[in-house]
Write a protein that binds this DNA or RNA. Sequence first.
RNA 1: GGCGGCAUAGCCAAGCGGUAAGGCGACGGUCUGCAAAACCGUUAUUCUCCGGUUCAAAUCCGGAUGCCGCCUCCA
Length: 485
Amino acid sequence: MGIRVYNTFSGKKEEFRPVNEGKVKLYVCGVTVYDHCHIGHARSAIVFDVIYRYFMARGYEVVFVKNFTDIDDKIIRKSNSEGIPWKDVAEKYIVSFHEDMDALHVLRPTHEPKATEHIEDMIALVDNLINNGIAYKVNGDVYFSVENYKGYGELSGRTLDEMMAGARVEIDEKKRNPLDFVLWKSSKEGEPKWPAPFGDGRPGWHIECSAMSAKYLGLPFDIHGGGKDLVFPHHENERAQTESATGVKFANYWLHNGFVNIEKEKMSKSIGNILLIKDFIEEFHPEVLRLFFLSTHYRNPIDYNKKSIEDTNQALHRLYYTLERVAEMEKQLPVEPKPYGEAEELEKKYYEAMDDDFNTALALSYIFELSKMLNKMLDDDPTINAPFVLFTNRLFLSLANTLGLLHDNLTDFTSTEKIRHLNRVGLTPEKLDRMIAERAEARKNKDYKTGDQIRDVLARMGILLQDSPRGTEWRIKHITMKGEG
RNA sequence: GGCGGCAUAGCCAAGCGGUAAGGCGACGGUCUGCAAAACCGUUAUUCUCCGGUUCAAAUCCGGAUGCCGCCUCCA
């Protein structure tokens, strides 16, 4: 049984059959670099990162292309409002994008082409469309004529008539059909422009993906992905352009991820509830966000809220504790791993879940079961179980890694968490250590009252003291969110 | 107006014809000066409602209700 994917085009799950045996050609629409990325971008990035990792784990050779839209109206607007060259705006946010992706352990794609470095390819495409009578020129702009492509609307599941009936399309005198879209626009004074046989100007939004996907992957390629909102018009238009210009099928499978809502509301500038990745990772471990997204199927909408994030944070800790317990056992009982059938059963189920349209929520349940299995063996009799524990742990880790989880060890994981927390409550590590020492002193004198008072004070700051054989340690109790409304 | 999606325990969430995964929480236990943490165990005779098909339905069909998305820049 192979991998099955839900294809937006057919509206069904289909057996995945690559164009070239053993290879996957994957194109995902990247970001327009005019601002820092928010957690909606993060979901898309993480979803396709997992798909990328999973195909590799299943032995495919993957060519993964994710573009940067580094020239468009929003970038120009930002350039004007901030008084910096548009090129610098783009560069700045590309750097920011990479910082965020690295923090989230999103693997770098094979290629990250920029629109502005492929203007020639776009011009060739547009030229081709004009020569074929599919595109037309009006006052220096070039439009794609949707009536000249009979498959228009197939991807988003609607017909031209239906779309016209919607009548929400803005009327533009220059267009022959209101649904026609711009391939190339003439630049206004002071705007960036490139020379072209059909007039100087700059590319429309959709054409870059048509040009770059064909260039790096060839046609047809296997999978085209992106956020659900891109189905129409972006992907519909890419498909129309490419297939009209080349006469070749564009992409075989279309995958789209669902949206992130915040407290049941759509994230939008007007509501002012956009949460940046940078703000999130200041408060929480980046893997919390990843685990949160993967706990729901990628096509479903997901609601971001404080409780869900805290639940997820707790669940992630659970996984890390297991890792820690095994590490301690291994120090004491260094043995060779021995295959353990029950763990292998779970591994099998994990792959079945992932094969079925990347059902990460189900796959995660097996990772949690592996964690529970490890804990039981450790509680039971580590001396006897050690070889099986090590085997199971290896599986546990590798399956989690395929989802991009458990990259840290527990010590690193908790220490970064703690630094975040102390900053949040305005306490220095020195001051905290002093308070802990005071309490230890009181306890030594059996002055439990004073000791408990100190514990209470700290508890109110979300710091939980834990007395262990190694002395008193602490962990985070409540996590409060910044800017929470 | 057109097209599409979703409704499963206190919360989050899989399952999509064969008799309800997993996580959080809660409760019980082990541990502890008391705790906490950690671990183990328990926690939906039932899947929004009403009909129907079937030996069998959360899963299929028809209808109702309630949410949501897209049709305009958007991950």
